[in-house]
Design a protein around this nucleic acid. Structure first.
Lengths: 366, 366
DNA sequence: CTGAAAGCGCTTACAG
DNA sequence: CTGAAAGCGCTTACAG
């Protein structure tokens, strides 16, 4: 079948062997334009004999399309992003697209570099979870270069593109409201709250009392804090600022320390909410070190990406992010736009699931 | 600085604006050949004014190098592969390379398709974890096309390339030996044992008694089973075949069922070894359902990728795979080979770490 | 040090 | 339906 030749055959060589012009060979192999059945036969036979493999670089150069999606995530190693990438990859493959992945480490410089590299590689579109929600320039450049962008998880202010986010505010509000209804009035919250937004927590809590406050352009952890505050306000509880802990980094170790502090303070909270799965691990270490029973001595609620099943198994109520669906939706939006650039921008809000011990069955959906 | 023009400027336009030839502009912007300081100044100014962005497709077409690595993993969503990818990505970025990722779903057809796509995209090299260790053709094709391959986790028989693996046999042998030394004589083992190799477990156990048996070309779970068998033989224990469970899929649910069966059989094992982290979760569900104390009623040892910290916190001894290092090493080997094609093939065997409750500090190393 | 010309491997109008 | 020619955006010898 294929020849063991080291240098790959080109369309010219296939054409010569088939006794046709390179234009004709191109039409057959690239499956465009017209060609007679006999010619098709001959060209395909020649291609097979030579082990012809199309060079997508040349095709991309001429068509302006590479059938490649560029993705920028914070860290491919985090369960959330890994799962999002899986969703993107599945949809991309079905559409015949490849995926180039880059890690930004939630660092603005690396993110800019990554976007630049992807544009130089001529990706057809970009799916990004941007670190800073107030720095739109590098993404605007992409859009200007006719490279459509889909944002997920976070939305950059002043950058109109397709986007996919989770209903962070409402699902957190509902979950915290349920905790309050169950009798908890002092609920601690551990959230990252950075680096996407530069507010300090105090002024955020103060400002948010204005009902017009817009958290669309905040990182998810700020949105979750808002849900927490709204639930308290609806119940007529003035939240104790000392119960609100900003961890600042996605670190279980940092969360462990904050949790230890929370769980040993005078007038300690009867329940804890962690706005991220990585932090939940740290909180568990703290409760274990203090020999606290869950949900006896303290109740836990956590927002999580992938590991929620085992949290639930330990008696923790979890809010599960549909990470895989986020990725799939983002890729779908992108492919749709690549097919039809003039559509109005679409903004999808996916529902997160509240998972308790008795409803593990929801697993199958995610 | 940059112009809002929608179509990207080419080197020709930059050259025209700078009043030089395109060859000269190319030399300056591409940083090759000679150019005088004054010309450099002019060209760079022109490029900045036009918002010039190099087209790597064109460059790749002409140089034959795309500065891109193609990666094939089973499932980017699994902690092991996610972590490996992180390691690859870090090294690749430092070397100025991009990374195209594809999931094979441990399916031979998808794997072949993925390799084909990557070759068409003209990746400079391939890092793969191949599903079937006895199907080398698609990878041979890559090598024939001057696209070097680095294998990791598993080695395909009859395909000489650089590779990175873990010392599965010896670390498992040592861990099981420690369990035996601690008094366990009936140790259950749950391992995937498929689909990479077509042996059935019985004939594997029988054959492996020949000391010449070569498991280099088996999937890791077979190698771990070998370590288990060797430890038993060294202690003079004839392993009970009913204690060896082949789960066949990477599924915590399947592992849960096997574990339930093992832990309720007559003459139940006093310890369990799971050859994979995903399965460990299933085993934990089984012990929890049976209200067994760990390590009181049963001791657990698990081979794991990323979540071992929380297993250790629960009193389970874990063997931690250096997944991140595997990826980094694979990428290093590839970049080395791209720089120097004639080196002899390198085969790196990385050590896995045994992590017990008192040695959590090892965390920092991984 | 610089420029004119050729060419990487394809696709795209345009004649025929 | 097919072919000759031009061209995508660069880099590479080769003169000068």
């Amino acid at each position: 079948m294929t020849q063991g030749s080291s240098k790959n055959a080109t369309i010219i060589e296939v054409a010569r062997r088939a006794g046709v012009s390179s234009a004709t060979a191109g039409r057959v192999l690239g499956d465009y334009g017209y060609s007679s059945p006999e010619v098709r036969e001959k060209v395909r036979a020649a291609a097979a004999a030579l082990g012809y493999r199309p060079n997508r670089l040349a095709k991309g150069l001429i068509t302006g399309k590479t059938q490649t999606i560029g993705v920028v995530v914070g860290d491919i190693e985090s369960p959330f992003y890994a799962s999002v990438l899986r969703g993107i990859g599945d949809v991309a493959r079905r559409g015949g697209f490849g995926v180039i992945v880059t890690n930004s480490d939630e660092n603005a410089d690396l993110e800019r570099e990554a976007v630049q590299l992807l544009l130089e590689k001529q990706v057809d579109g970009l799916i990004v979870s941007s670190t800073f929600v107030d720095e739109p320039d590098h993404l605007r450049e992409a859009v200007a270069a006719r490279c459509p962008v889909v944002q997920f998880d976070r939305i950059v202010a002043g950058l109109e593109t397709d986007s996919v986010v989770v209903d962070n505010v409402s699902v957190t509000r509902n979950s915290i409201a349920a905790m309050i209804a169950a009798g908890h009035s002092r609920i601690g919250i551990l959230a990252e709250l950075g680096p996407g937004h530069r507010d300090d927590v105090g002024s955020f809590v103060a400002n948010v009392d204005l009902s017009s406050f817009d958290v669309r352009y905040h990182h998810p952890s700020w949105q979750r804090l808002l849900g927490y505050l709204e639930a308290h306000r609806a119940a007529g509880i003035d939240p104790d600022l000392r119960l609100i802990r900003r961890v600042a980094v996605y670190s279980s170790e940092a969360a462990r320390k904050e949790a230890l502090d929370l769980l040993t303070m005078r007038n300690m909270p009867s329940a804890l909410f962690t706005a991220d799965g990585v932090m939940s691990t740290g909180v568990l270490e703290a409760t274990s070190a203090l020999k606290l029973a869950i949900p006896g001595d303290v109740s836990l609620l956590c927002f999580d990406d992938l590991d929620w099943m085992q949290f639930v198994a330990q008696g923790i109520t979890a809010i599960a992010q549909p990470a895989h669906l986020i990725g799939a939706a983002a890729a779908e939006l992108l492919l749709k736009r690549l097919a039809e650039a003039t559509l109005p921008f679409e903004h999808r809000v996916l529902a997160a699931q509240i998972v308790e011990r008795n409803s593990i069955a929801v697993h199958g959906q995610l």
